[in-house]
Amino acid sequence: MSHGRRQKPKNLLMILMLSPYLLLLFFFGVLPLIMAIFNVPTKSPSNPNGGWHVIKIVLHDFRLVPAAWHVLGFMALFVPLMIFFVVAMSLMLDTDTAPWKKWVRLAYIVPACISGSVAVLLWYVLLEPTLSPFKGVMHFFGITQASQIWKTSNLTYILVFMAFLSLAGQWILIQFGSLQSISGEILEAARVDGCTQFQLATKIKLPLIRKYVIYMGVLVFAGGLQIFVEPQLLNSSVYHGIAQQWSFDQLSYSLAFDNGNFGEASALSLMLLVPSLIGALLVIFKTDMFEDVNFKSPKKLAKEAKKREAAAA
């Protein structure tokens, strides 16, 4: 009894210490979702009587299918390119431990600090045949006018290029880090068995870093689905109208802030959240990425401990 009485105030202090984070998690993680769900069936210009019918209206919006094609096209190029390139580069970096590779790794991290509006500025310069540091190469391939690059039909490739250059470097280093966790003895045994560098990379290292590659794949997929800043800035600042409501998030933004239709915007936001949530749950429960995390409740842990004690006895 006395033990029980002592536990309560202790837990109270613990809960007090946890509460700032819990409040943030509730107000900025859970509540916005609840509010968005309640906001979906409210009255709006396109849904004057209100109701869940709005989901149908969003699905029939003439801008949704083009946005879906754009984003799917973007993802179809971006996600495999990222995974293949990042894995290949990190395996190449891991072939030996030459001291100069330290500097190479430092260089790879540089584009990671170029994000959002700076990325748009820099990748615009990189692709502009009159400004680009690579204009010699561009001129060699006959690209001398901005109009040859900046057209709507090229937008998918331009955005893949921007997103890829911004993200590839840091993921190369992260996957290289995961390769460092492979036991030296395994690699040595494979070498003794006559493995070439290529076999070592594809047959030993790659299967051992599979979970990190899946983790990267899910984060890259979820981030790619929500592409907004690059097409929005290109559209509003660089070439007006080149990427009007090009992505899902731009459409959602336009519904909310151009049309004042928060019901439709919320519906679209919630629909977009579903694939990200599925991806997150897959990583948590279907991979061993977080295998060390102890999800078990205190009761279960106590039961297991008792069982172990009984077995030992």
Partner: peptide, 28 residues
Amino acid sequence: IRFKKTFLISTLIMMLVPPVALVIPLFI
């Protein structure tokens, strides 16, 4: 404390969902 599992799973979900996904709901 109780709900450790709920806490960890919701934290991991929030960690893996891109923040951009919640911008419109947060604005509301």
